[in-house]
Design a protein around this nucleic acid. Structure first.
Lengths: 215, 215
DNA sequence: CCCTATACGGTACGCGCCGTACCTTAGAGC
DNA sequence: GCTCTAAGGTACGGCGCGTACCGTATAGGG
């Protein structure tokens, strides 16, 4: 019998086991006993490192997905936008996406966990990528500079996320992605700069400084 | 002691008890034993009617919220849209919304339950309301007729839903609703009919009949 | 008016899983 | 070599879901 594992080595083994359980059974099916058994250890070693099952789940998910995608650069705004949506759709409809959704659902009760999840899910990185994409398009003269607005930049991903929530969980059809780009995103981008160009800081003036503001 | 309850009467009592448990403890905290105790019966009577806890949760939620809102008619498209979003925000940020989110999270594993949920959550009704709203605006000459497009009509609610998913659970600030209307919805509506007027059935032509279509 | 089928009430239980407690044992560092 | 930390082993309490079994009320038909 080989030497007994400790510290970092054991921790990695646990994380690997948990990640495999996540992939096979989803978060709902990930059992502490099974993770311990698969890692060749016992629950003690796990609970000494993570306080709950959820914490282990998040750590394992992070251990599972650490790849970062480079920004797309197809030469046209439409191509870039479609590529971004397609990549996101692929990620979210993959087993990883199913796991992430399970985790999000489980963390729905726990605000603290939800925060940790958001940090790890790369939503902010994604939004920044859309903004730089818009700025590149503006530099090419393909879009008005006013189009590089956060609300505009985040709209396609928001629509994709909502689409996931509405449907079951299978991947969103490509036609929907195309429609999001052609029927919403591009019209929105091109509509700006003409008569609709409203800067963010003009909104409050129009609204009288927060009429009916909540909280 | 009064006569023993049966059939419809008992069913209503169970639903009422379950709805109260939902309101007080959320779906995660709704226990079959507690529901039975509160209804003054036992789990048998419950399991004879609903197969799982989730089914009871859905039924109870529906029992809890059956009010239908009339369409808003403020006279302007902007006013109508804002009113719709504000109502939805109020509903979703209320205790009912928290319950509904818990149910959705729990139903994430079960496609069948998810379908039932969508039917009950009134998403379709909501989308129809937005479409009629757009048609009214078009009739007033406030928007191009081409703006009554499903993808356009559903966009504001989609953005609101995604906003919920991104934040924790508190209500979305009113400024965000205003921004959705002024920065996305209205530009989108007015942008249509000029150079961006693409009908739905032209998309497939442009895409060559489904390049990279999935599934 | 009684009789029976049906549904309710009560209770107990099996199961799975989380998280904890307690003790034994290995092995790293001094 | 000794000690102290962290591992392994095991058992347990608690909770909640879903099921089984059995006595009992009551509706509805004969």
């Amino acid at each position: 019998m080989s030497t007994r594992r400790r510290g970092e080595e054991l921790e990695q083994a646990i994380l690997r086991a948990a990640a495999e359980e996540l992939r096979e059974s989803g978060y709902a099916g990930m059992t502490m006993d099974r993770v311990a058994a698969r890692a060749g250890t016992n629950k003690n070693a796990i609970y000494r490192r993570w306080p709950h099952r959820a914490a282990l789940g998040i750590a394992a998910y992070r251990h599972l997905t650490d790849a970062v995608m480079p920004d797309p650069d197809t030469g046209s705004l439409r191509g870039d936008a479609l590529e971004m949506l397609r990549r996101a759709n692929q990620t979210w409809s993959s087993p990883y996406g199913a796991i992430l959704r399970g985790l999000l659902a489980a963390a729905a009760d726990d605000p603290e966990l939800l925060t940790h999840m958001r940090e790890r899910s790369g939503a902010d990185t994604m939004d920044r990528a859309w903004l730089t994409m818009l700025r590149r398009a503006a530099a090419r003269g393909e879009a008005p500079t006013a189009a590089a607005h956060p609300r505009v930049a985040t709209t396609p991903m928001m629509l994709l996320r909502a689409e996931y929530a509405m449907r079951g969980h299978p991947s969103v059809p490509d036609a929907v992605l195309v429609e999001i780009v052609d029927e919403v995103f591009l019209p929105l981008v091109h509509g700006r700069g003409s008569d609709q160009g409203q800067a963010l800081d003009q909104i409050e003036d129009r609204e009288g400084g927060g009429e009916r503001a909540q909280q």
